[in-house]
Design a protein around this nucleic acid. Sequence first.
DNA 1: ACATCTTCGAACAGAAACGAACTTTTGGCG
DNA 2: CGCCAAAAGTTCGTTTCTGTTCGAAGATGT
Lengths: 254, 254
Amino acid sequence: MSPNPRQLELLEQVRERGSVSVEALAERFGVTLQTVRRDVKLLADAGLLARFHGGARVPSSTTENIAYRQRQSLNEAAKQRIARAVARAVPEACSMIINIGTTTEAIARELLQHKGLRVITNNLNVAAILSDNADCEVIVAGGVVRSRDRGIIGEATVDFIRQFKVDIGLIGISGIEADGSLRDFDYREVKVAQTIIEHSREVWLAADHSKFNRPAMVELAHLNQVDVLFTDAPPPDPFPTLLAEAGVSCNVAV
Amino acid sequence: MSPNPRQLELLEQVRERGSVSVEALAERFGVTLQTVRRDVKLLADAGLLARFHGGARVPSSTTENIAYRQRQSLNEAAKQRIARAVARAVPEACSMIINIGTTTEAIARELLQHKGLRVITNNLNVAAILSDNADCEVIVAGGVVRSRDRGIIGEATVDFIRQFKVDIGLIGISGIEADGSLRDFDYREVKVAQTIIEHSREVWLAADHSKFNRPAMVELAHLNQVDVLFTDAPPPDPFPTLLAEAGVSCNVAV
DNA sequence: ACATCTTCGAACAGAAACGAACTTTTGGCG
DNA sequence: CGCCAAAAGTTCGTTTCTGTTCGAAGATGT
């Protein structure tokens, strides 16, 4: 089978929103319900999506996973903008480590056209996305898979990442506090992120505006370990000062 | 093949716009539809673009992936039966290593209801499937991701797997020859499979009937390293004798 | 459990796209 | 100028896609 653009976009729609009704899809593409059903059946048979009475959704869907997908569609536009800005800044043929997070997944999608990348990641979704880029060597870190977001964490993951040293370490986080500390919720994920920072020549942080002043439990790092911050809106006080003191260049995506 | 200027520009057009209709291309170049089709066919055969009914688009390996998915639907019923048989045989709360293959993915789906499993895999798809089982610890092996089937292969993968010793090693293969040798196509995958065999207390082989007498390049192992064979039809001669000699118990799924 | 409203899927028909075979044009080259 | 080969155009039977219709299957509310 060779899927046509409509079918590919259908897939994208479903992946973006988690689930879409047949009717909405028919409307979107200006075709009849029956045609959408045919497309959906085709893609479902290929295992690329799952169907339910009235529509289609992403194939994997525990409750947790859906929650994650929904979080993914939160601030979707902001994430997209950040992702594009990051992708523009990434040179061709460089090596990177990319960690867990909905923003980093958006970035991975934007990197599909880059040539000669070598990407190490502890995020199954990032690995799956980038494995579609024939001109990108994807290395996935070993370790325990967390079902919530398909992140790979744990001691083994840390050991695995230690083997490398890359040009760019790209991390997403849960929160930045007013003292300049970067924080996350899961202790084991923090360990991985710290290792990524240590093994990157340059550290890029991707965080949309909702992350500023958002509290999280575990301290991961401090702003002065970061080289570039990518975000979607000018940071609120006191962050401009903090960023300047820490020598972080701030890239606000428009 | 030596593409003419029009064909080169056609390629460029497709890459720029993602996908273009045959008609638009014909218009663009002032030639007939048939000529465009000839060009498109040529470029598609060379793998430089993918075609769909009505036009052409970039050969995103989502497409290759779909080809893989379709292979998955080949002998689907047989694989499903094998998968169910394997799942019935897997005790609760055991540890396993599962390798690459469409059959092993079907098995992963059947294991979604098992409790207390600990699964190590070098297959991103298996990892993704089983991560939906909240009561299953999934460990993914680190290494290079092969875009064709999202298998993880290479030296790092071998090293990673060496850390473990599990109850059951579950492998799928490309072919079993009449001398009892198990074979596959990719050298690096074979290395991984060998390591899995070494680090499993018991080796289970899943192979549908199409695998018997199917030639493949690289020798992976021999039947006498296998403890149980799961298949969907009684093996043809001379395999019954071979299996008996090798002490392999054969489980034919009905 | 029943009635009702949706959604689904099979079957058919018209339209569009395809591919094979054949013809025409184009551009050397003796 | 005439010949030849390669590229492009033409024609036509075949395949693929899409919309339509209608009975079956699935959801929903009482």
